[in-house]
Design a protein around this nucleic acid. Structure first.
Length: 293
DNA sequence: GTCCATGTTCTTTA
DNA sequence: CTAAAGAACATGGA
């Protein structure tokens, strides 16, 4: 569920509330959702980790809450960090009235001045999400590309020029550009009138500039609407996002294109559903086949 | 029962 | 060799 706008919406909602609070209790219900040091799938949990995370977090104050790519990052007062990745179905919920199904972690926080208790719970039915504890003094992220919102057209041009693969696959590659996912790539390519299967290194400078502009415009509008709720995503206060109402292609297969009325197409591309207008987003003839000459 | 799902990573195929 | 496709992870909804 969560791409950059959804993750940013979570951070925007939680940051003013959590910053400055101190962790007074950590309930780790599913230790295999936590890894230490870096993102990785946890196969086997050593039994001590159950107690490690709560003791590492105990009495730590949250100095800052921010987003990097699709990660929600808590900076703690001992310079350690706690990363949350929501995967496909993860949610952070503020002061849940009851324990949601598939809750894996509950943080209880105390505010200093007016003594007040806040809870944040992490739930994730499919468990593609992850929590990572980064110990004090460790380097932050490693293999993530730049933030799309701070890209310049020239920078995007350089990134795409190095990739022969299809545009969509390049834009989904988090090591190239970090934060876009299936929804916002489809929406951005449609807005820029570019076909997802165009080789990334064949864009003209004008097309690159247009793509860069549209990516940023769509992300900003999606953040303002608090992201897209297709099924699972909720803001920390339990509300749905609103940007799905402004989608022009994503999940609109068969419906008329808003600019030319041609029915929106849904194709399978690298195993992901891909939505486009076959009339607005043409693929030049020489790219329709992949025969090598 | 079937197919599909906002993500990531590993393996297989061409 | 590289690039792309496919499978895997786990759960639930249509």
């Amino acid at each position: 569920m969560p791409e950059l706008p959804e993750v940013q919406s979570v951070v925007d909602a939680l940051s003013p509330i959590l910053t400055g609070q101190t962790i007074s209790q950590t309930e780790l219900l599913r230790p295999d959702i936590v890894s230490f040091g870096r993102f990785q799938r946890v196969k086997k949990v050593s039994p001590s980790l159950n107690e490690d995370l709560p003791s590492l977090l105990q009495h730590r104050a949250i100095t800052r809450l921010y987003r990097r790519a699709k990660r929600i990052i808590l900076a703690l007062d001992d310079t350690s960090h706690l990363y949350f990745h929501l995967g496909m179905t993860g949610n952070l919920t503020l002061n849940p009235t009851s324990t949601l199904p598939h809750t894996h972690l509950i943080l209880t926080l105390q505010s200093p001045a007016p003594r007040q208790t806040t809870q944040v719970s992490f739930s994730d039915p499919r468990r593609f999400g992850q929590i990572v504890y980064i110990p004090p003094g460790s380097p932050p992220d490693h293999d993530l590309g730049p933030e799309p919102l701070s890209l310049t057209p020239a920078h995007l041009g350089r990134l795409l020029a190095s990739a022969r693969r299809p545009l969509k696959s390049a834009l989904l590659d988090q090591s190239l550009i970090a934060g876009l996912g299936n929804i916002y790539v489809d929406e951005s390519l449609h807005a820029a009138r570019l076909h997802p299967q165009l080789p990334a290194n064949t864009l003209t400078p004008a097309q690159t500039a247009s793509l860069c502009r549209h990516i940023q415009r769509i992300l900003r509008k999606a953040i303002a609407a608090r992201g897209s709720t297709l099924r699972d995503y909720r803001t920390p206060t339990g509300e749905s996002g609103g940007f799905q109402l402004q989608h022009k292609v994503y999940d609109r297969q068969g419906l008329p294109c808003t600019t030319c009325k041609t029915p929106i197409l849904r194709i399978l591309h690298s195993g992901r559903s891909t939505h486009l207008c076959p009339s607005c987003q043409r693929l030049p003839r020489q790219n329709r086949r992949t025969f090598r000459l």
